[in-house]
């Protein structure tokens, strides 16, 4: 691992970590503190994962706890179910979200409904980690952002950190949660910046978003890799005299409705940004939330700046698929000047 600069802030030891290092740090802590923690995935052992999320973990905790599995997504999730109902706490790594589909049946028909089908006799407290998203010039299929396939699925929670601090805190919260949690990790943010991350254990509450920029004219709602796009757009808008508030949703199910309602009531306008396809995208659920909670406060129809209804293009064209700060600014101006 790269050199880690340690510093002390507010009497609490912190480290300067990237998002991927924060994930690694969180998993190390979870392995240390609970013998039931077991990590399963492809190439996660000796290789330390294709993104190095598990670097050094097999070395420390052994091949029985950091397990290189066969190349078999349904097998990873299916055996994790058996491990979880029988007392273990699996963290299953799916190498890329775009490769999760063979396991979709296991997640849809079992992970998400064993609690319901057994009236809580059997539960599957487990974490599924998956890197997602476009913008790193990855080969095709590696860049999907299909979060709504899972937010639509009752019985599972979905979180999506945008920064190192939230990544570790949400991962630990996901492991402590009695229900299965899918942790979507924005690949684009894996090494994009470092944050002060506490060395010890802490959680970021699942189901709670965060205001990452305060503003008065329009609310930008985003998560994961789109937070940096929202931030760029907010800066550009500020130059035009428009004050943007940014909500980092952090949890995609269950969504923090209060933070959305309160912010939109204050700013009276909203722009939703996501890199997933438009139709059936989470933006539509957010529109519904605003409709249900803040309709009479709105001064303009809600804008959605999203990916298009196409498969994520090959990377030579992916910049045209992904929302850009310029597109977001256009959306902001539209709602402000409506």
């Amino acid at each position: 691992m790269a050199q880690i600069k340690e510093s002390i802030t507010n009497n609490e030891t912190t480290k300067q970590l990237t998002l991927i290092q924060a994930i690694n740090d969180g998993m190390r802590l979870l392995l240390e503190e609970d013998d039931r923690t077991i990590i399963l995935g492809e190439d996660i052992g000796k290789n330390g994962g294709v993104f190095r999320a598990t670097e050094g973990l097999q070395e420390t905790f052994g091949g029985d706890r950091v397990v290189d599995t066969p190349l078999s997504e349904a097998g990873i999730i299916g055996t994790s179910i058996g491990l979880a109902v029988n007392g273990f706490r699996p963290i299953a790594e799916i190498q890329f979200l775009g490769f999760i589909y063979p396991a979709y049946e296991q997640i849809m028909t079992h992970v998400s409904r064993i609690r319901m089908r057994s009236m809580s006799r059997f539960t599957v407290p487990m974490v599924i980690r998956a890197p997602y998203g476009a913008g790193i010039r990855a080969p095709e299929i590696h860049s999907d952002s299909t979060e709504t396939l899972f937010t639509h699925m009752p019985g599972i929670k979905v979180v999506c950190p945008s920064n190192p601090y939230d990544a570790k805190g949400l991962l630990i919260a996901a492991m402590e949660d009695p229900d299965p949690v899918l942790v979507l990790e924005p690949m684009k943010n894996y090494r994009s910046k470092r944050d002060e991350v506490p060395v010890g254990k802490y959680t970021v509450e699942i189901g709670k978003g965060k205001i990452v920029r305060e503003g008065t004219d329009v609310t930008l709602i985003a998560w994961g890799a789109m937070i940096s796009i929202a931030e760029k757009a907010a800066k550009l808008a500020a130059q035009k005299g428009i004050s943007c508030e940014i909500i980092d949703l952090r949890t995609l199910y269950p969504i923090d409705r209060d933070i959305i309602a309160n912010s939109v009531k204050k700013t009276t306008r909203a722009v939703i940004i996501h890199e997933a396809q438009n139709t059936g995208g989470l933006g539509n659920d957010i529109v519904s939330i605003i409709n249900d909670t803040a309709f009479l406060y709105l001064r303009a129809p809600i804008e959605r700046i999203t990916g298009f209804d196409v498969p994520v293009p090959f990377f030579a064209l992916e910049e045209h698929y992904l929302p850009t700060a310029a597109r977001v600014v256009e959306g902001i101006e539209k709602v402000v000047h409506f």
Partner: peptide, 8 residues
């Protein structure tokens, strides 16, 4: 796979 996991 569930049986394999529980047995594991």
């Amino acid at each position: 796979p569930h049986a394999a996991g529980a047995a594991w």
